[in-house]
């Protein structure tokens, strides 16, 4: 049920219920607040990055009810009653034995699939979504289906290697340093 709360100096506010990384959040937001800004500025979840704010780079990729989407193009008010997983919650989806990381997080380190690290949370969330979708069956298909995530440092081939390895083997591989 959509609830509009009292207008304040912040404008018209709407009550929105979100499950973020498994935890319920009951927040009041104005309709012009994006999910990305709510996460970063409102809830302090700065792991989700703002790279363009227009759906052109994928840095803000989160999982909405398990599907990868660009958080910058979602108004938070439209996400009422939905479940969101951000990079902060990815590890708990599938913790590995050591270190408590998701196999993709481990594989990204093993393959040096990042440099500055700014696109990395979006890349990893995107890869989680890619694997769940089940439409990539080759490294070329991984490259195509990871093309919604820009990496200006140019770590693409390492990203493709990391994602393909987890997709194929289910783990980061040899691990270690």
């Amino acid at each position: 049920m959509l609830q509009r709360t009292d207008a304040s100096q912040r404008g018209e506010l709407y009550r929105v219920k979100l499950a973020i990384n498994g935890a319920p959040h009951d927040v009041e937001v104005a309709p012009w607040v994006t999910l990305l800004d709510l996460l970063r500025e409102g809830l302090g979840l700065t792991g989700t990055k703002k790279g363009c704010d227009h759906g052109q780079c994928g840095a803000c990729t989160v999982l909405l009810d398990g599907m990868r989407v660009n958080a910058c193009l979602l108004l938070a008010v439209t996400c009422d009653d939905r479940a969101i997983t951000t990079i902060e919650g990815v590890a708990s989806l599938e913790p590995t034995a050591g270190g408590g990381l998701h196999p993709l997080q481990d594989a990204f380190m093993d393959h040096d699939a990042f440099q500055c690290g700014y696109c990395t949370p979006g890349q990893i969330c995107s890869a989680v979504g890619l694997i769940a979708e089940g439409h990539a069956h080759s490294r070329d298909e991984v490259r195509e289906l990871m093309s919604g995530n820009l990496c200006r440092c140019g770590a693409y081939s390492n990203i493709a290697d990391a994602v393909w390895q987890v997709l194929r083997d289910g783990t980061a591989g040899e691990g270690g340093r």
Binding site: G58, L145, M146, S147
Partner: peptide
């Protein structure tokens, strides 16, 4: 068209 993320939304 677009990207996987955009096609999901």
């Amino acid at each position: 068209g677009a990207s996987a993320q955009l096609r999901n939304a």
